[in-house]
Computed example of a mutant assay.
Amino acid sequence: MPLTQADDIARLLNETRTIALVGISDRPDRPSFTVMKTLQDHGYRVLPVNPQIAGEHVHGEFVWASLADIGVPIDLVDIFRNSDAAGAAVDDAIAAGAKAVWMQLAVVDHAAAQRAEAAGLKVVMDRCPAIEIRRLGLSPVEA
Rank of each mutant, 00 (worst) to 15 (best):
V90C: 08
D91A: 14
G87H: 02
R30T: 06
A130W: 02
Q104H: 13
R27T: 15
A88L: 06
K99W: 00
L12R: 02
D8T: 00
I9R: 09
N14Q: 15
H110W: 10
A118H: 06
L121E: 02
V123A: 10
V72R: 07
I131L: 13
D7A: 15
A106W: 12
K122Y: 08
A6N: 13
Q104V: 11
D78C: 00
S83E: 02
K37M: 01
Q40M: 14
V108N: 02
Q5K: 14
D8C: 05
K99T: 04
S139Q: 14
D126R: 09
R81H: 09
A54S: 04
G60F: 10
I131Y: 13
K37N: 03
L47G: 05
S25G: 08
T34H: 13
L136R: 00
D7H: 14
D91L: 11
M1D: 11
G120T: 03
A119K: 07
S83H: 01
W64H: 15
V58K: 06
N50G: 06
D7C: 01
T38Q: 13
L76N: 08
A118Q: 07
D91K: 08
V72M: 09
E61F: 08
A54M: 03
F33R: 00
H59G: 08
L3Q: 10
A54T: 01
L47Q: 04
V77E: 14
P129K: 07
M1K: 11
E142Q: 12
A68H: 05
I70M: 09
A6W: 07
D41G: 11
K37W: 00
Q114T: 09
D41T: 06
M103A: 14
L121K: 04
D7V: 13
T16A: 03
A111K: 11
K99Y: 00
D109I: 06
R30W: 08
A54G: 03
G137K: 01
E15S: 14
P129L: 07
M103Q: 08
T34G: 07
G87M: 05
G60A: 08
A68D: 14
L67H: 14
L67T: 10
L138M: 01
P73Y: 02
I133D: 12
S83K: 13
L3H: 11
L39H: 01
A118N: 11
Q5V: 07
Q40P: 09
V35A: 02
A113V: 02
H42V: 06
A130M: 00
